[in-house]
């Protein structure tokens, strides 16, 4: 009886339970070699392909060497790609009853979502670091300061926060892993119809109208502008601050909408 009394009054706090949930998610990523190795190989492969296969055809873009144009865009657009797994895991957790188990425990259930976001940030930091390292290895150089480079990195983490909520929502809506994977593929037209890999000026009018007014473009532009630093105005037409603010507004908007949706989907269960 004493054990019941002793554990009865205690309660896992929101931060403590968030860390516990996040730890599980990060471990499950790190201990699944397919995710870590394949993810990294894929990343390196795509970057190298763009740099050396397509790069030759493009020559320069907006007056920039293609490698300096594409690497920042690639990194920004890589953020949602890295987090697709969140939708799948979330849907699987619902399907297998893992979330039911968690919700039947006496800790604040907000930690289930918060822990996921925290884990996403950890995984994203890891894969952004690799992408950046590969970028430098294939010839990408910062034109601005180191501080601006770090700001670009931080900005990508902010985008990650926004997309974390998007993919959690999709996962909660999908019902099973395969459906979640399918829904998450909606990110493809969004990334390819953006300024991430090629300048929007090269696109036909209707696609360009779409590309110029969607979040991935604004995020790719912001990272690119920070990498260019003081030269952003010369190459892109506006100062780095302009692009950064625009991308932060997109991020905030996405976060607010999908935070509300994810919480609503989670509560409904």
């Amino acid at each position: 009886m004493t054990t019941i009394a002793a554990t009865g009054r205690r309660r896992a706090t929101l931060p403590a339970s968030t860390v516990l949930i996040a730890k599980r998610a990060v471990l499950s990523f790190l201990r699944t070699p397919q995710l870590v190795v394949l993810g990294t190989v894929q990343l390196v492969g795509i970057l190298v392909t763009f740099r050396y296969v397509f790069g030759g055809a493009f020559g320069t873009s907006q007056g920039l060497p293609y490698v300096d144009f594409a690497v920042p865009g690639f990194i920004a657009a890589g953020v949602p790609f890295t987090l697709i797994g969140t939708a799948v895991v979330m849907a699987e957790d619902l399907h297998t009853g893992f979330i039911d188990r968690l919700r039947s425990l006496p800790f604040p259930s907000a930690a289930v979502l918060a822990g996921r976001v925290l884990a996403d940030s950890v995984v994203l930091t890891w894969s952004l670091a690799i992408a950046t390292a590969v970028g430098f290895a294939i010839g990408f150089r910062l034109h601005g300061s180191i501080l601006q480079g770090l700001a670009a990195f931080g900005l990508c983490l902010v985008f990650g926060l926004a997309f974390s909520w998007v993919f959690m929502t999709l996962g909660l809506l999908a019902g099973n892993g395969q459906a979640a994977q399918g829904l998450a593929m909606l990110i493809f037209p969004l990334t390819f119809g953006s300024s991430a890999y090629v300048p929007v000026e090269t696109m036909p009018g209707w696609l360009r109208a779409f590309a110029e007014n969607q979040p991935i473009t604004s995020m790719a532009d912001a990272v690119r502008a920070l990498a260019l630093g003081g030269h952003a105005q010369d190459f892109l037409g506006h100062s780095a601050a302009y692009y950064v603010i625009r991308s932060l507004m997109w991020s905030a908007g996405i976060m607010i909408v999908f935070f509300a949706l994810a919480v609503a989907c989670f509560r409904r269960r």
Partner: peptide, 16 residues
């Protein structure tokens, strides 16, 4: 605090 739940799907984390 006074219940436990186990289901028809084993809801344990396979990577732990």
């Amino acid at each position: 605090r006074v219940i436990g739940l186990a289901g028809q799907y084993a809801s344990v984390e396979p990577a732990m």
